[in-house]
Computed example of a mutant assay.
Amino acid sequence: MLLFCALLLVLSGFIPLSALAKIQIYTVDTPPYVIKTGEGLEGLSGEFGKAVATSIKKAGKQQEFEVVWVPYKRALLDVEKNPQSLFFPLGRSFEREYKYHWVLHLDDVDCLLYAVDPKVQIDNLEDLRKYRIGVQGGSAREQELHRYVGKSSKVEAMSDDLSNFRKLQTGRIDIWATRPMFVDEAKRQMQAKGMPLREVRVVKKLFTQSLWLVGNRDMSDQSRNLVQSIFGWGNKKNTVKSPALNAGNFLNGALL
């Protein structure tokens, strides 16, 4: 972690904002993507950032890149607008497949359905459709839920996924579709405020999400070649196909 923090200082100190030829690497600056500790930065942005920074340093290309810390939604907007840009971590989905260059696979994470009410059970798609489900707006989790329940008003999207934890705790939603790290961070924040917590349990696994370092679709050949020399480049055999719209894909997973 100290290596990553040191490299960020190097990048910030030696790359002027006016250097438009630099490749900007957007990553998320809010918990739980990044958590500041006495030993450096933790969370997905911190862990993956360390790997990305190490690769750049190993290639001796620190002067070619600038790390930019921004909120998640702004990062998505900026990487789509800026041809000289990369972003991590982004979940790969069919809907996003042709919006970005998929440069480097980082990790796979499970997306789970959480509840506090012991009466909430999911044995089939009809069960899923009867519950109010909180999810992060614009996420692959939201897209996946709509595949199963359609454009239902019971899928309630929030820009701040951690807000869904408070809604779950107060009974304003029945299920929260999220990743374990968001649950852990939400618990930590509420416990720090001395707020009582209802026990949260996993009802079912929704799907496994593949996280990537992505690039703008209009990146120049010169920049693409530089990025490829450092990180490699995702190939066509890894493209995501739209899964069949039936219950099998969802129900064949083990009930938790």
Rank of each mutant, 00 (worst) to 15 (best):
V214C: 06
F94I: 00
I230C: 09
K167L: 14
E185H: 08
E185V: 03
Q228H: 12
T37C: 05
N238M: 11
K241I: 00
V240Q: 11
K22F: 01
E126K: 15
L3C: 07
N252Y: 09
V202Y: 01
F182E: 03
I15A: 10
V68S: 07
R74H: 04
G13E: 08
L256P: 11
M219E: 01
F65L: 06
K130R: 15
F250R: 05
V109Y: 08
F182L: 05
Q169V: 10
E144W: 10
K167M: 14
L44N: 11
G171V: 04
I133R: 01
D78R: 15
E66Q: 15
L7R: 13
K237I: 05
F165H: 14
G138R: 05
R188H: 11
N82G: 00
V202N: 02
D108F: 12
K193A: 13
D108M: 12
G60A: 04
L251H: 12
D78P: 02
V203D: 05
F88V: 02
F250A: 03
Y148D: 01
M195L: 15
G171T: 03
K61Y: 08
L86Y: 09
P118I: 00
M158H: 14
P71E: 00
L3E: 12
N246Y: 01
F231Y: 04
G40E: 02
N249L: 06
L168N: 02
G253Y: 10
V135S: 02
R166C: 00
R172Y: 03
G253D: 09
Y33K: 09
L9A: 10
C111D: 00
H146N: 14
P32W: 07
T27L: 11
R96A: 03
A140S: 15
K130C: 09
A53P: 11
R201W: 04
Q63H: 13
Q121P: 03
A247C: 07
G194H: 07
E47M: 14
